[in-house]
């Protein structure tokens, strides 16, 4: 009963936003029924569709966690994009410089390179917050734009692949590629990493002292401080962890999907991650499920654009509306 009660507002929010967007789609002169059946069922019609959904799930759940972990401590990390790019750069540079290493060395190094680079990118705003008390929201956002220029520099600089038309680096060593479950369509092992991270985050926040301190800090920093929790250090730690996880998502993109660094690889994963995190209301346990639902919508959106010529942004608006309605359902319940 409680699960039904908890799920009901989500369900109503989804229905409401589909109705709202449906009116818009109909006004544009498209077939609403066809559009929605494409969005909802592409993931389940073919094995390929389901694998695409799992692949989309990986960056989405990691980006969402990169947002919700700092949120647990009451801090907003809007820098997942920059941290993901930094992670991608770290992974690619390691993978190219040590390309001759065997897989059992290179793959961990590539992943670690991404995690460390992402953590550094998250550490900058954390340090500015710790040292100068500067609001982390703006600094994390601004660092995204710095990272966008940085990836352009890396992709057009010394590591550039001159054969590629788009700014791209040369490929990383084969040892750095994530193993595949399946060759066609390529289905890499990133999903296992993502699930392990999601479980790890759940155990950390729900079952350990450190995680409890994080939650206490977010719930009431002053009270937490009185009980001897080093609140400011928890802020730094939370942003560092968020950066590391976002960096990991960049490393997986390089090691699993592209095998090289490509400008634009960050897609719009960060914004989707924020939407997922906010729909889940910052609850780390709920994040993976919401992320999977959004992955279904995203795969459906590309199919809808291909077959029905409805721009993918339509689905993005649906997702933003779901968020808005979920937030509104809180207000309704309060009354």
């Amino acid at each position: 009963m409680t699960i039904v009660k908890k799920a009901l507002p989500y369900f109503l929010a989804v229905v409401a936003s589909f109705i709202a967007a449906g009116i818009f789609i109909a006004l544009m002169g498209f077939d609403v029924f066809k559009a929605y059946s494409t969005i909802l069922f592409t993931s389940f019609r073919t094995p390929n569709g389901f694998i695409q959904t799992l692949l989309k799930f990986v960056p989405l759940v990691l980006q969402a966690l990169a947002f919700t972990i700092p949120l647990t401590a009451g801090k907003f990390n809007i820098g997942g994009e920059g941290q993901m790019i930094a992670g991608g750069i770290g992974a690619a540079v390691v993978g190219i410089l040590f390309s001759s290493l065997p897989a059992y060395l290179l793959l961990p190094l590539v992943i670690l390179g991404g995690i460390i680079a992402g953590a550094i990118w998250g550490l900058i705003p954390a340090w500015l917050l710790y040292k100068f008390n500067i609001n982390e929201i703006l600094t994390t956002v601004l660092l995204n734009f710095v990272a966008l220029a940085l990836i352009d520099y890396v992709c057009t600089g010394a590591l550039r692949d001159p054969g590629a038309g788009h700014p791209t680096t040369v490929a990383i060593g084969v040892g750095g590629w994530l193993p595949l479950f399946m060759k066609n369509p390529p289905f890499h092992a990133g999903i296992i990493i993502a699930i392990l991270v999601a479980i790890g985050v759940y155990i950390y926040t729900a079952r350990t002292t450190g995680g409890y301190e994080l939650i206490a800090t977010g719930a009431n920093p002053r009270a937490a401080g009185v009980f001897g929790i080093k609140v400011r250090r928890m802020f730094v730690l939370s942003l560092l962890l968020g950066g590391a996880i976002a960096g990991l998502s960049g490393a997986i993109e390089v090691a699993g999907v592209q095998h090289r660094l490509i400008e634009g690889m960050q897609s719009n994963y960060m914004v989707l991650g924020l939407i997922i995190g906010l729909i889940a209301k910052g609850d780390n346990r709920v994040v993976p499920f919401v992320a999977f639902a959004i992955a279904i919508l995203e795969v459906g959106a590309s199919a809808m654009q291909r077959t029905l010529m409805i721009p993918v942004e339509m689905v993005f608006i649906v997702e933003a509306l779901i968020l808005l309605f979920v937030l509104l359902s809180d207000v309704v319940r309060r009354k």
């Binding site: 809007i78 914004v271 924020l274 939407i275 906010l278 721009p311 942004e313 339509m314 993005f316 608006i317 997702e319 933003a320 509306l321 968020l323 808005l324 937030l327």
Partner: peptide
């Protein structure tokens, strides 16, 4: 504010 930001980004390209 963030939710409105998302809607704005989506609408502007749509």
């Amino acid at each position: 504010g963030l939710a409105l930001f998302f809607i704005g980004v989506g609408l502007s390209t749509l």
